[in-house]
Simulated assay, not measured.
Amino acid sequence: MSMLTPSGMGGKYRITGNAYPRMRRPRRRGRIVAGVLASVVVLGLFGWGALQLFHVFNGGDGDTKANAGPQNQPSCKPAPTPAHPVKLAPMPQPAGVTVNVLNATTRGGLAKSTADELAKRGFKVSKFGNAPTQYDKKVTQTALVVAGPAGEAAAREAGTQVAGATVKIDPARKDASVDLLIGDSFSALATPADAAKARIVAANPPPPKPVCTVPTTPAAKPKG
């Protein structure tokens, strides 16, 4: 047996050449792949757990939000349409409005100064003075315009001169004159430019807004 014959081969095989063959262990590829997959799973579980902790500490609850969203949306119904809609009469020019300026506040001199300014703007001022007992010191807004059905359009025209004024129609009133009652919130008449803008809105009032209700969601019970 030659010295180059490895032990245990019984001399059946002879190694020739100037170098010995390298005897390596078989590569364990299966273990490497399994290790990589295990690492990926562990990292994924770690990331999922961190995300859940983030939601807990920030008060997040995916299921609660998903279920509560649609419940909290407002429910809107169209505004009711009158059975007999009333067509508004065209608004007259200031020269076609007869107005009575009445002071319903405790401040003196408002009726006269306001009446003089309205006269300059073209309105027909019939009289000025203190408001009657039923309105005296009872008008909290800037102004209240009172007229009968025949003076509805004239009342809207007079109301454009005071920002925030409201119109009240008295069915028992027969003439077309208008009472402009000065209220506690009154400071001055609207500027001519603002009155012109208000006249456009009064001549073309917007349609009634839909009635919307928002359901209330019961408070969530604390987790214990």
Rank of each mutant, 00 (worst) to 15 (best):
S7Y: 12
A95R: 06
A153H: 11
A95M: 04
K209T: 08
L45R: 02
K168H: 08
R14E: 13
N58Y: 02
P21S: 00
V145C: 05
S75P: 07
A219Y: 08
V201Q: 15
A155Q: 01
R173T: 03
G59R: 03
K223F: 09
I182S: 12
P92K: 09
A193F: 12
V146F: 00
L37P: 14
T5Y: 04
S187L: 02
K127P: 06
G109M: 08
R107H: 10
F123T: 01
T160E: 04
M91C: 02
T133I: 12
A203I: 09
N103S: 00
G122F: 07
Q93V: 04
I200E: 15
E117H: 05
P205H: 03
L189N: 13
I200T: 15
V139N: 06
A165Y: 06
K87M: 05
G108N: 08
K197M: 13
N130C: 13
A158K: 02
S113D: 14
F128M: 13
A79Y: 06
K197P: 10
Q73K: 14
G59Y: 07
T16V: 13
R22D: 05
A163E: 10
T217P: 07
L144H: 00
L45W: 13
L4D: 09
G96F: 01
D184H: 11
Q161V: 10
T5H: 13
D175P: 10
F123H: 11
T140M: 14
A147C: 10
K223W: 05
F57H: 07
Q161M: 08
Q141F: 11
R199W: 11
P80Q: 08
S75Y: 07
V99G: 06
G60Y: 01
L51G: 00
V86F: 09
K209L: 15
P207S: 14
V42R: 03
K197W: 06
A89V: 12
Q161R: 01
T142F: 04
A50K: 11
L53Y: 04
P92G: 07
A38F: 15
D194K: 15
F46K: 11
A154L: 02
R173G: 04
Y20K: 10
A68F: 04
A153K: 10
G69I: 02
A50Q: 14
Q93S: 03
D175F: 02
K174Y: 08
A176N: 14
T133F: 13
G159W: 06
T81N: 01
A95Y: 01
K120S: 12
T217C: 09
M1I: 12
R14T: 11
P78T: 03
T16M: 11
G35Q: 13
P26N: 03
D116S: 07
A190P: 11
A143C: 15
V145M: 12
A163C: 00
P80F: 08
T191I: 08
P149Y: 02
G96T: 06
P218D: 01
P94V: 02
E157D: 00
G10K: 07
G151A: 11
K77N: 05
Q161F: 00
V36E: 05
A34D: 09
R24M: 14
V42C: 15
A79S: 01
R107N: 08
K138E: 12
A111Q: 02
A188T: 11
V145P: 02
M91A: 07
V86A: 04
P6N: 07
K124I: 02
S185Y: 00
K137L: 03
V99F: 06
F186P: 12
S113R: 13
S126P: 09
P74V: 08
